[in-house]
Amino acid sequence: MEKEKNHSRPVEESDVKDNSRRDFLKKSALMTAVALTPVAAARAAEMHMDERLAQVFEKMPLHLEINGVAHNLMVEPRSTLLDILREQLDLTGTKKGCDMGQCGACTVHVDGHRVNSCLTLGIMVNGKKVTTIEGLAKGDQLHPMQEAFLKHDGFQCGYCTPGQIMSAVACVREGHANSEHEIREYMSGNICRCGAYPNIVNAIQEVKEGGMAI
């Protein structure tokens, strides 16, 4: 399924505070569009120029397959995968807990590997497959790890939970769930302030011992 979606909100005329920016297009008559690199466009915008034009040149096309759905987006190179998921695609299951790679709440799978989406520039995973918590269940049927988290109460507030579950699935797939000790070590990149760690370990052990293909 091919899906065109871009939720970035264009600035409306009424938002423009500085009239001089509106004149930018006129002023820039001598400038050819191709000569405008994104940085030049950013500078142009800083120098009272039209931000709508700047915006066009600041963005790059990004093709991602997220949870099996193809997305063709236009993004700024500085946009992280996390912000693209949460703010542009309304996939808010992936959480922002620190935005600096220090808590694991934003964990997603890129081409099957768990990564921190807050430190991943969206543009750098162009063409890759991304799986988020929303893509784990098959319709109404929960993924075994989701079931195990439910059964063992591997959470309280639920905020770190999507990251924990994405990490837990990867932990088992990687072969790092062979003992309680190993699970704890390989799940230490996901902070849970509610302190559900023992329950998380129990959930992962159950999935691992269940031997289901996950």
Partner: peptide, 17 residues
């Protein structure tokens, strides 16, 4: 950890909903 009923809002939390 598995004793008793699970959370009524648990499904929403484990699915990111």
């Amino acid at each position: 950890s598995s004793t008793g009923p699970s959370r009524v809002d648990g499904r929403l939390k484990v699915t990111g909903a």
